[in-house]
Design a protein around this nucleic acid. Structure first.
Lengths: 333, 333
DNA sequence: GCGCCTAGTGTTAGCGATAACACTGCGCGC
DNA sequence: GCGCGCAGTGTTATCGCTAACACTAGGCGC
């Protein structure tokens, strides 16, 4: 193994000089820097991560806690992970993946043994048992989602409440008076996953304020559940003219079912999705949608973690404004 | 921070005794063990990962290289990652995620700086530029997929060639004489992703041997591409009676399109999917399928990596036998 | 010409674990 | 009663790097 001492010898300098060339923490003459860098390349030197971590108490590792169950919207989670990993690399950090299953103890383990410098936690629930632990950790933490009591934890997410409101306003603006929300799976609500409730709140409040009749129902990600929901919704005396779908998994099946039942979109019913843009575009009918910006959120989460690692300690709750793109699946009732 | 010396002092023993209690590498009296473990719990001691890595040259970290683009079948990849992470934890390992984008240099970086003890690489291509690098690394490596020249690298995967063959035999056994394969996106073939070619090979060879007329075409994961494929396939003089679909992303759209065109499954056309079981079950029509056992492959990959970390050096290529489950979407033509 | 600042570099004491080496005391064979 | 093996424990060198501390030489103000 090539050590820093080997490089130093080859370049005719001391080990600390090599270290400083690498870290940039003190000024080095142009000439020395070049000699050191040449030796590094020639010998194929890579600083030993363990030694570095021990001496500097920095691991350059980020722990990302992901919900690796399949009942959640998998593509969104994956996009988020991808964005986080890429962005972290830009700061010279690698990403460690923990599952939600590890629970609070996993968080203590990772921080306690100094495996990671900071944490990003996805899929936070309203009364998440991990939140109090995270608050006591004394390491930078960024939550994706907003628990009831974030305390001094930094949170990032789409502003789902505003998104719910915007969906209602969009349909109301087109003249719809009776609308429905097809929400996430019941288990998502039961778990108290924060985004589901926030969206629902924005949806209901805005509908009430705008004097719009609204219904909402969760929907499990199966054909069977979807059919039952549709049977229920479409059989009502007051016909529903606008449908907001906050459930990526049933978008395809929904359009199929509507087609099978002879309902044309948007002539007979308007469909407004809440999902990533690429998903809205790639449906049988391109869908008007409020974007779930998983990539932007992932990048932002990393930025905020880095800021805290640099010593900026102010807690923040950053909610991204929703963006609605009209792709023609909504129209006048 | 609580160090091993603190624990040793509290338990009235030497640091090495604490270390040995933890590692089990030498015999400790029952009494001492108890005292040490009580002190560990009382003080909330977690061994420092960096110090441990430096002293033992073991990081207890596994690097997992994943294709974090969205053109690949995302749920399968996610299932695989989940299985890998869970299984790794069972061996007291954590998992570091690298993207395929990092390329060969990323692999050198991670092993060169001793960030991880071993590598699991997903989405391997036939002539993957990373393979020669991996061979030179001198660390345990397990590939998911089989490159043209694996050398002494361990590989795990579904036996896609056998899967292709089994699909043909299943349809042939039902009496089909004209069948088609709807394959992965063209870009998957162009990239030389190994499973696509292996499946195709098994499909074609078995069809030829069984004197069955076959067609195969890649299909991008969009409605537009699917419609064109179907137009092409269904317009033929010799009607296709059996369709093998090796492309998770278009399963839903395919069934919708067939329904729209008035083709009943399996009366008018048999559909045989190659996908994870849960996906086959949750379609509009439950699909007969050859299972993609992402979880089993993930667990197996970890097991094999652990075996190699324990010093077992024999290279292996482990191809899991395909399992076909009849769910009624295939029948006599 | 003295003091002080700045740029550039070297020396070395840790960081917190592991594991090689060393020691004690007891039981047992003969 | 001597020697040996073994179970149980302690002492400490070592892993490779970082950063605190120390030093030199040159420039500048006054």
């Amino acid at each position: 193994m090539v050590t820093i001492a080997d490089v130093a010898r080859a370049a005719g300098v001391s080990p600390s000089t090599v270290s400083y060339v690498l870290s940039g923490k003190r000024s080095i003459s142009e000439d020395t820097r070049r000699r050191v860098q040449r030796s590094i390349r020639k010998l194929g030197y890579h600083p030993n991560a363990g030694a570095r971590a021990l001496a500097s108490s920095r691991t350059n590792l980020l722990a990302l806690v992901v919900p690796l169950r399949t009942d959640l919207n998998v593509p969104v989670a994956m996009q988020f992970v991808a964005a986080t990993v890429s962005e972290a690399r830009a700061y010279d950090y690698d990403v460690l993946v923990l599952t939600k299953d590890e629970g609070p103890d996993g968080l203590r383990r990772v921080t306690g043994s100094s495996i990671a410098d900071a944490l990003i936690v996805m899929d936070v629930e309203s009364a998440d048992p991990r939140v109090p632990v995270l608050q006591s950790l004394d390491r930078p933490v960024v939550l994706i989602g907003v628990p009831d009591e974030p305390g001094d934890l930094t949170c990032v997410d789409l502003d789902f409440e505003a998104a719910g409101a915007q969906c209602v306003r969009h349909l109301a603006g087109l003249g719809h008076r009776t609308i429905a929300l097809l929400g996430p799976s019941p288990v998502v609500y039961e778990r108290g996953t924060s985004y589901a409730g926030r969206f629902l709140k924005g949806f209901k409040q805005t509908a009430t304020a705008a004097k719009i009749r609204e219904t909402s129902m969760p929907c499990a990600p199966t054909y069977e559940a979807l059919r039952i929901c549709l049977d229920n919704l479409l059989a009502r005396r007051r016909a529903i003219t606008g449908l907001v779908v906050h459930n990526e998994a049933i978008l395809g099946p929904l359009l199929s079912e509507l087609a099978r039942r002879g309902k044309k979109v948007p002539q007979d019913i308007s469909v407004l999705a809440v999902c990533p843009d690429d998903m809205a575009v790639s449906q049988a009918i391109p869908l008007t949608s409020v974007s779930i910006p998983s990539i932007a959120v992932g990048e932002l989460a990393v930025e905020m973690v880095m800021k805290r690692l640099d010593g900026v300690t102010a807690a923040e709750v950053r909610l991204l404004s929703p963006v609605l793109t009209d792709r023609g699946s909504t129209g006048r009732p």
